[in-house]
Each structure stands twice: as structure tokens, then as C-alpha cells.
Design a protein around this nucleic acid. Sequence first.
DNA 1: CGATCTGGTCTATGTTCGAGACCGAGGACA
DNA 2: TGTCCTCGGTCTCGAACATAGACCAGATCG
Lengths: 120, 120
Amino acid sequence: MLDEIRTADAQKNSCPIRDVLDRIGDQWSLLVLATLDPGVKRFSQLEREIGDISKQMLSKTLRRLEQDGFVAREVHAEVPPRVEYRLTALGRSFLEPMRGLIRWAEANQAAIVAARRGAR
Amino acid sequence: MLDEIRTADAQKNSCPIRDVLDRIGDQWSLLVLATLDPGVKRFSQLEREIGDISKQMLSKTLRRLEQDGFVAREVHAEVPPRVEYRLTALGRSFLEPMRGLIRWAEANQAAIVAARRGAR
DNA sequence: CGATCTGGTCTATGTTCGAGACCGAGGACA
DNA sequence: TGTCCTCGGTCTCGAACATAGACCAGATCG
């Protein structure tokens, strides 16, 4: 299965994993998805909860996640404006396998830190 | 579990997931790990198989993966030089939860592409 | 002597990112 | 009437980072 990542035609196009991970593997996407997991959130709420993300990147990240069908965006025509974001079914289903990775990260962070410390 | 990603102290430090994903979630790390999955590989072999990675990034990525204990590097003092890379136990164990994500990517790429096409 | 091999590094150029200024519509306040 | 505030962004600027490609060392082959 892993070999699909590295086959010849995997380069550039039509490799699902590279494609998906290029969207998801950036600094912020996963964080935004996880923050949306509990439920609907507004823009500024995401900004506050994530804390160290810039408006620009939050905006860009949300836009891409929306484009790829992970989140839904709902604008309420009020003043001041209110924009709500929520996970789609696709977004929620994505977090499922992610939990396995998160469990691994929790279990193995110590080992990584140790390796990092050990390798001088 | 996901909430660990977004708790207050998750910001900046001591969040295993953010920490791990910062190493792994870049453009190349996962790709290198997957390419090393079948067994030992030399530098130029990785370069060829991945195809669109630059020497510089391959070098840098390998160095970081080595530092974090995912891969082992073995230099043979010959001319021309021969340097071999292989997964460590940690590296191999990491690919385990990754397979879940890869399966998801394969199963859902169509949906993503559709969403991307649909959202104009 | 000159070419060739490997595993990188160096440099010049282009892309991306974060910080923070700015914006527009309407309501609250004076 | 005028001024300020809110929210969800966008714009600009300088800094950081990625890419392509030239270059290197040191032994061996012809």
C-alpha cells in the first residue's frame, strides 16, 4: 500500500496520498479541523482558540478546506458579519484515521524527544 | 483526544501531536519514510525514486528524520561514497497508523476531487 | 591527463509566511 | 449629526524558506 506513494506515476499527479497530504499536512489544516471537531465555530473564535495562527493563514486554510469539502462555510448577512464554519461529513470521517496517528504521537513523543536529545 | 491539539498549552510547546506533525507533515518527510519502507536505500536511490525532490531538501529531510530517530544513516568510507538509510523501529512503528490515513486517502480522494471541482 | 562516480553543499532566485495596517456596513452613543 | 465599535476578512511589507542547478572532493578507469 505504501508503495503507492512512491510509484512512478505518484510523482506530481494522481497519487491520492500525496494529494491528500499536501492539503492536510501543512502547518494549520489539521489544527483547524481538530478545533472544529466539537462543533460550529466562528472565524474569530477559531482565531482565538488556535491562538498563534494569523488571520491570513486562517482565512487561506479555511478556504482550502472548504474547497476540498472538509468544512462548510455559512455567511449570515448581518452587521457586524457573522460567518460560521462546521465540519462536513467528509471532514468528520477524516478525523477518524487521524486519531490513530494522534495516539501514536502521544505514545511516542518521549522516544522522539529522547532521540533528538541523544543525537548531538 | 482531539482536544489536546487545541488546548491552551497546546500552543507552541508540549503538544505531542503538533510536535510530531510539524516534523512529519512537511512536504517530504512522509514520502521519504514510505520510500524507505521496503528496505535500505542509498541517497541517490531515494532521489531517483521520489523524483521531484531536490538534493537539498532530501538531505535536510533525512537529517531531520535521523535526528528524530525515524531513520538510521550508515556511511561506508569508500570512493565513490556510499551512504545507506534505513527505517528504525520507531520509523516502522510510525508507518503503522499512517496506513489508516492512507487507506482513507485512497477511499476519499474521489470525494475531494469532486468537491474541488464542484466548488468554483 | 581527463572523465566519471557519489553524496552532498553553495548560491541565486522565487515562493510562502507572519505581523499588522486597513476596510466597509450598520448600530450605539452623544 | 458625527464618531466609534464590531467582525471577517484583504493588502502590503520584510523575513523565512524552497528550488534548480552549479560546484566539490577524491579515487579509479582509459
